[in-house]
Design a protein around this nucleic acid. Sequence first.
DNA 1: GATTCGGGCGCG
DNA 2: AAAGCGCGCCCGAATC
Length: 599
Amino acid sequence: MTDVPTAACVLGTLPGTGFESARIGIIDLDRSGAEIGRIELAEAALPDFVRDRENGAGREATGAAGSTVRAPAPGPRWVLSDTPKWYPQLLAAGVSVERCHDLRLSHAILARSELVTAPDAIRAAADWDAAPADASAPEQAAALFDVDAGRGHIRQVPHDLEAASAEYARQSAAIESASDPGRLRLLLAAESAGGLVAAEMRAGGVPWDEAEHDRILTEMLGPRPIRDGKPAKMLAKADEVRAALEDPRLNLDSPNRLLSGLRNAGINVASTSKWELAEIDHPAIAPLLEYKKMARLLSANGWHWLDEWVDDGRYRPVYVPGGVVTGRWAASGGGALQIPRQLRPALRADPGWRLVSADVAQLEPRALAAMSGDRAMAEAGYGKDLYSGLVDAGVVATRQEAKIAVLGAMYGSTTGEAGALVPRLRTNFPAAMHLVDSAAEVGLRGGVVSTWLGRTSPPPSEGWQRLQRAANRFDATGADEQRARRAAGDQGRFTRNFVVQGTAAELALAWLADLRLRLAGLPAIDEKPATASGPVFSRRAHLVFFLHDEVIIHAPAEQAEEAADAIRAAAASAGRLLFGDAPVDFPLDLSIGERAIKD
DNA sequence: GATTCGGGCGCG
DNA sequence: AAAGCGCGCCCGAATC
């Protein structure tokens, strides 16, 4: 067994009587997917087993180890039912893995992908169409959860070895039969790597300066109130509003009452939205907008949030890879994707460490230029700000116009300023515009579209189909037709945006996947381990934050420049991996500092 | 009392 | 004046 090259290891639980401790089964597969061995372990022995395999035990040596930044002999690809089910315990034990195949994430893609020509077997395996294991539940609670599997329990994928092995075989067959297996393999590898990164970022945590957060809250709102009362500055601001409206008892927190209060004061607005209020000239408006901002900060990211989500100097949100239909990540707790810019100063490196922050400038339009092969659009952004490039190319007059036009093109704007500007893009960038216009056309008619690597949009709902049928009946009313047209337009804008947002997400995932391997190859430092991070993350640069087109790395100060180089190299590498030699680049805004401040 | 729905606003 | 995509979260109000 020890001298056979193992390409993949399927992990799964083994059936037991329930009286002994849990047993884990492992199936070794060779490159053709054929079984070459089985191993059985106690659950407690799994971390050591995985560590040994990652270090090269159980497969042939393939050259000198440790001489380059990238590990020369990769470990096996771990086939996991669901990464949050398996990986957190490994990380807690100080073990990380290089690569995996997440069956749950891959199933979701393969069951829908247009590239899969024989989807029946995958689609029939409905067990695998399930929610991720709850990474926010502590492990002991997870055990209780299984006992209490009745009410309110969201179904998980099966975690046993036979089910995992069978699903892996189905998925492998689906990939083999695909019209472009290479693209799907890339997509599934990137998606699965995202699963690893999400678990790693949660385990490592974002270094969070609680004192700075408290200082920002106190400055904005006043000192933390006793119990759940409102802070002093907020109360004072509310009094200002009530005085200006001459309505001393008005409840500002109820949109209905606030709306009546505004109308009673002669302010005619249709809603209490800030963009509508901002247009009004009245002494109550300025303090009201300030009050709304304060209320938002308090409820979304106030002291209560700090107590719940930040512990021991680390913010640990729950990421949900693949949680958005387009392939973007979602978050299921802690609001990881909505940290307000106001609180950015609270992200702060540990002493002796740095935060390396980078985002891809205009990721989505660049992804569009690349996938459509639009040379003019690629050239407009090459090596510079894409929006300014549009001004330089004479397409529009100002950067602001460029931004409105480009967003309008990707979102399907037809009216207003964007609607007026989009036709200029159609003239100058016909390939790019043809791609999004075609995607919209397909959606409008009820069809599905796919990203560059083959993630396919969900078909419109049954309700949508019903609306379209109703509008085509002989007795359809004008209202029926209007509803159907509106729904069709919505679906068209969705598919238009899907191809762009989804392809951008793929580029970002490929960037992330490449980056985490580069960082894992950096040498461990001897001193100044990051105090609050887990064992895997305390001795070298590691990812701590990812938000669509942006990453933040926590790095030992002496490793910060290497981490920055890794970020840049990974972005270039991801661009080549997806788009080959297309003349598109993905330039980064990058900064190194104790804090993660952009701009 | 527990659950859903929509307004409003934060992020890309 | 929010037109135009994708989200999550909180709150008040409606509903059971």
